[in-house]
Amino acid sequence: MLLPFNCEDIISKIESTLFNLGYMDLLSYQDTPVHRLDSRIKLIVTLCFLLTVISFDRYEISMLIPFIFYPIYIIASANLPVAYLFKKVLYVSPFALMIGIFNPFFDDKIIITVFGIGITGGWVSFFSIMLRFVLTVTTVLALIGCTGFNNICYAMNRLGAPKVFSIQLMFLYRYIFVLAEETARVVRARNLRSFNGKGKGVKIYGAIAGSLLIRTINRAQRIHYAMICRGFNGDIKIFKSNNPGVADIAFFIIWIFLFIVFRIFNVPELIGGSVLRLIQ
């Protein structure tokens, strides 16, 4: 069958986005020790990790390095695909690049010399930003991969985040699949009736967006009706999970302790120093 130009592209793009979203979901259904941990504990430890990594001085590089152990531990023990996560990190890297790329131009004071070559503060802070970016984004992706988006919403809720916020996120995640499928269908229907580039203008996109919006509103109405039918009265009640067990508390204590150690002591320097002393 002859398909109008370009239509396969758009459909496959929407479908691959869906697939990608679903893939993170699939990863979170595994059964590993890390997956079994309480999602609240994982969320808190990850937040502590993010805060500690961000809290360093802008020229810091060496002290950041030990923090790589946390995402490595999660990825390895939760059996997450490294290449897939790395690709995701690369996708968003332009944002971090944009933030750091001008540092080398503005900050040209040489602050360290390696093998006789002076390195400016700008380059050091640029690398520091990139390192922090890789650490934080990888860790957040690993958290989603080993916990699942919904469980993170629940954890936020249980930790006292406003319900409106966590429930919104939950619904967003639930219906993004439905909306994406609907969009893919509409776009496919349009492509099959567009010829010679006609029917592909911006105007059509406006109409499509409008009709999708109206469909969404209609669906929202039906969902609300479905909720009312089952006793909804403005407050979504969420089933309480069990309290954290020994494994959860151990995970929490060990990692928080390590983060404190990594934050206070320059571990690479200490190790380097003791190795040097041993050699001497």
């Binding site: 919904n150 919403c153 939950m170 619904f171 995640y173 639930r174 219906y175 439905v178 669906r219 039906r222 969902i223 009706y225 479905a226 909720m227 009312i228 039918c229 089952r230 006793g231 909804f232 009265n233 979504i236 009640k237 969420i238 089933f239």
Partner: peptide, 30 residues
């Protein structure tokens, strides 16, 4: 509404909670 159970034509409208457990638990919790 307590005594009349309504099953919708489009199940996507009816299953609004993230997991099967949460969805089936929604009514009893309410």
């Amino acid at each position: 509404r307590r005594s009349v159970g309504m099953v919708f034509q489009d199940s996507d409208d009816q299953l609004f909670m993230p997991t099967v457990f949460d969805d089936v638990a929604f009514g009893p919790l309410n």
